[in-house]
Simulated scan of single mutants.
Amino acid sequence: MTAAPGERPKPIDQCQDVQEILDQIRLRPGMWLRQRSLRDLQSILFGYGVALDVHGLDEKFEMGPVGPFAQWIEARFGWPMALGWAVAIEKHADGEEPLEAFFRLLDEYRTI
């Protein structure tokens, strides 16, 4: 889960969408997430989704606790999503760091 060679963080106000923000979090997870917590990441993304709704912004947002990303994980692995994708990934990481597992799954999801 390392950045590509030469890839540097950019100011958050230069990000165009949630996917670019996730790319920035991947570059510097310690700046964004206490103890690299997936639940903190899910909370950040929940707030992002709420802000989109409140401000009437039209952005494809797939990262809600039970949104398209969670539905894909549930369909792909059969993991329950009652508590959101963060808990499901943490529970099924099988020794892999949960944040690394998240980004691995995110990369796979982005290819579909």
Rank of each mutant, 00 (worst) to 15 (best):
G47V: 02
G84M: 08
R26H: 02
E62M: 06
Q19P: 06
E59P: 02
V87I: 12
Q19E: 15
K60L: 14
D58L: 08
D13R: 04
T2E: 09
K91D: 09
P65T: 00
E90H: 06
D53S: 14
V87K: 07
E62N: 13
L83H: 14
S43K: 14
K10T: 12
S43P: 06
M1V: 11
R26V: 01
E59D: 10
G95V: 09
L38H: 03
W32S: 04
E97K: 15
A101K: 15
Q24P: 03
A101I: 14
W32M: 01
L57C: 08
G6I: 01
P80D: 06
G49L: 02
I89K: 05
L57D: 06
E100P: 04
E59N: 04
P5C: 00
I21V: 15
D107W: 05
P9D: 01
H92D: 05
V87D: 02
P98S: 02
R104Y: 12
L83C: 10
T111R: 15
F69K: 02
L106H: 15
F61M: 04
G56I: 07
R36W: 11
I12N: 09
A75F: 07
G30C: 07
F61Y: 12
D94C: 15
G56P: 01
D17E: 05
V50I: 15
R39W: 10
P68T: 06
E96Q: 15
D58Q: 12
L22Q: 02
W32F: 15
R110T: 06
K91N: 11
L106S: 11
P80C: 07
H55A: 04
A82S: 13
